[in-house]
């Protein structure tokens, strides 16, 4: 029986929720609430993720091996004695995030070559 390894290309393009969670975990492991705060800050409040969407995405990302659970511990920065599950990127998750970021950069490059970011564009000047 052969087992096929998944490649980052299979996941592209990522959904906004998955992309933002991967981005939040890019600089180190975080727990669910930490991810939620980071996503909100990174998107200037444009992406508000509730617990359902957050953990639904986390579940699917764990299944797809994009992230993994590191351990369960108390967050010293929060005055809450309960333990929290921390998540971190896997190698596949890291490569997928990189490829998605490159894909988005190339899209922005196209936008730039078409002068979409120039001031005249909104005035309808070609």
């Amino acid at each position: 029986m052969t087992q096929t390894l998944q490649t980052p290309e299979e996941f592209l393009p990522l959904t906004p929720a998955v992309f933002n969670i991967l981005l939040a975990l890019a600089d180190g492991e975080k727990h669910g609430y930490g991810i939620m705060l980071e996503v909100e800050a990174n998107t200037k409040g444009q992406v508000l993720m509730g617990p359902g969407t957050l953990y639904g995405s986390i579940k699917r990302m764990l299944q797809a091996d994009l992230i993994e659970e590191s351990d369960e511990r108390i967050d010293p920065e929060m005055d809450d004695p309960r333990r929290r599950s921390y998540y971190r990127l896997t190698d596949l998750g890291r490569r997928t995030l990189r490829m998605e970021a490159e894909r988005l950069v190339s899209q922005v490059q196209i936008a730039k070559t078409k002068n979409i970011l120039a001031t005249d564009f909104l005035r309808g000047v070609p």
Binding site: G32, Y33, M36, P51, G52, L54, Y55, G56, I58, K59, M78, D80, R82, R84, S85
Partner: peptide
Amino acid sequence: AYPTKFQYEYGSQMVQVFQDC
């Protein structure tokens, strides 16, 4: 309202996050 398995795996974490919110 969630499927039982999902509740069992993530329910307590979701409640914790909701309380933080």
